[in-house]
């Protein structure tokens, strides 16, 4: 099962990463959810023992590792929190940029960078030239 878990978690991580890189911002949020699922699965898979649920009265055989379960629970909630924030952020960006693409945001950035730079470029380059 080791390999199966690793494969599944790796595949989810890769799929999530691919989604995060898409230009559609809402898909980016989905990507983060998938990645967080990958992380939770990994935490669960990293348990040191598999068996019955760790609830008293304990059965005599093997018991599942409760610590990794507790970690998985915490990480699920944290994943939920981050996703919520990211989703709202994306909604705001969509609202402000009137676009759902990371590309448009990037183009905007390039344009702003250029205007910002142009303000000072001449004076600055002259200053640099003076030091030569």
């Amino acid at each position: 099962m080791t390999l199966i878990y690793a494969l599944a978690a790796g595949a989810l991580f890769g799929i999530g990463a691919y989604l995060v890189m898409r230009r559609d911002l809402l898909r980016v949020v989905l990507g983060v959810v998938v990645i967080s699922q990958a992380a939770t699965l990994t935490l669960m898979a990293s348990a040191l023992g598999f068996g019955a649920a760790p609830i008293y009265p304990l059965p005599s055989g093997a018991i599942s590792d409760p610590l990794s379960q507790a970690m998985a629970l915490t990480s699920v909630v944290i994943g939920l929190a981050t996703t919520a924030l990211l989703l709202v952020l994306v909604l705001r960006v969509v609202d402000v940029f009137r676009s759902q693409g990371l590309d448009e945001v990037a183009e905007d950035e390039v344009a702003q960078e250029a205007t910002l730079d142009a303000e000072h470029a001449l004076g600055h380059e002259d200053e640099e030239a003076a030091a030569r």
Partner: peptide, 25 residues
């Protein structure tokens, strides 16, 4: 500008923390 940069900041760092979590596991 700050919204756009915050988005990238959040995304990249989120990835960072997930990678961190994998290592914790």
């Amino acid at each position: 500008r700050s919204l756009g940069s915050a988005l990238v900041f959040t995304l990249v760092n989120l990835l960072g923390t997930f990678v961190f979590l994998l290592s914790v596991a």
